[in-house]
């Protein structure tokens, strides 16, 4: 059906519709009344509550050390990371002790399949994050140049680096300040804990398609 006929059919349906009273003005968002104070603590608490791991670090050095420890702990020989200028820790790749593989960033469409099958064995993905949401323990990520979607999706372990000042109260708070966020990227996504399913007898299982382990590293100050 062409667009005009389709929309005309909708238009005539609305005219005779017996809907409950329709608001005249667009209702818009609703920002819940949540305190700004203590968002970091609440954020850390909520990430843990959805089975994520949290680390609050005071400096870049501390962050680099922590990531080195995590890579070792998971036995990772390589990792997929966002481009350096999209990570809040300067020179992360150079400063890690053992870095057999630099940031793997897939290139043009031609290389897509090779790159993506290459990811299957990747253990660790390292990304930045645009925001942390205290109320739900979520992180907000925006895909784009130097920021592959796959880094937070394919590996078994996702390490997200977040600046403490980017933590806000809730999704509605963040969106109220970033009304254009959806239009600005081909993929805006909000992650709340590691991948989970409860499809089989509602028994919780982590890591069904996405990462099984989520580490959120908060850079204080």
């Amino acid at each position: 059906m062409n667009r005009e006929d389709f929309l005309e059919r909708v238009r005539s349906a609305i005219k005779v519709s017996e809907l409950p009273p329709i608001p005249e003005a667009p209702p818009g968002g609703l920002v819940p009344d949540l305190p700004r104070a203590g968002v970091t603590e609440r954020f850390l608490e909520q990430v843990e509550a959805v089975d994520g791991h949290t680390h609050l670090v005071g400096s870049d050095d501390e962050a680099v050390h922590l990531i080195g420890v995590l890579l070792e702990q998971y036995g990772a020989t390589d990792y997929l990371a966002w481009a350096p200028d999209h990570l809040p820790v300067a020179g992360l790749a150079e400063r890690l002790r053992a870095t057999p593989l630099d940031a793997v960033v897939p290139g043009d469409a031609e290389g897509r399949l090779e790159h993506q099958t290459g990811y299957t064995d990747l253990l660790v993905g390292i990304t930045g994050a645009s925001a942390g949401l205290a109320e739900s323990g979520s992180i907000v990520l925006e895909a784009g140049p130097g920021r592959p979607r796959m880094a937070s999706l394919i590996p078994l372990v996702h390490i997200a680096l977040l600046r403490e000042r980017d933590i806000t109260q809730s999704l509605s708070h963040w969106i109220a300040d970033h009304a254009e966020a959806a239009a600005d990227t081909s993929n805006l996504f909000i992650i709340t804990g590691p991948s989970r399913t409860a499809d089989i007898e509602q028994t919780l299982n982590l890591g069904v398609h996405g990462p099984k382990h989520l580490h959120v590293v908060v850079l204080g100050g």
């Binding site: 784009g144 959806a182 081909s186 991948s195």
Partner: peptide
């Protein structure tokens, strides 16, 4: 499900854009 947000809230706007590494 009683979650505050689902694990993945995925907002898709068009196909990959110039410079996007995947999508």
């Amino acid at each position: 499900t009683g979650q505050r947000l689902s694990v993945y809230t995925n907002i898709v706007t068009g196909a990959r854009r110039p410079g996007d590494p995947d999508g």
